[in-house]
Amino acid sequence: MTRFEDELKNNNFVCSECVKCKHLVWPPSDYCNKCFGDVIWRPVSKKATLVEFSSKDGKLFCIGEFENNIRVFGTLEGNSNLIRGQNLTLKYCNYDEMPKFVFQTD
């Protein structure tokens, strides 16, 4: 189990940030994918923007983007008048074989 997975299980979304160039490395890794510098784990903002969305069996799913960088798939809760680019909040995250993200409209 990696730190990333451990933290997700505790409802904390963390990612690796390069100590040399400050790049936020996604997907999480032990080294920076720009400069191969060492990384530290830091919390990712809970604020996201809506990149795209669809639904399956009436349940919304989407791609949300954090910090103009990290894009992930997640389920989406909230009103149905969705607009691409609107603000979302990460309501909940978990890890069970794969990451799980739940977004909420603001």
Binding site: P28, V72, F73, M98, P99
Partner: peptide, 16 residues
Amino acid sequence: DMSRGEFKHPIFWASM
């Protein structure tokens, strides 16, 4: 793929 999370079947990227 950590980005896809639980949406690991190809229908989800196609739907996007």
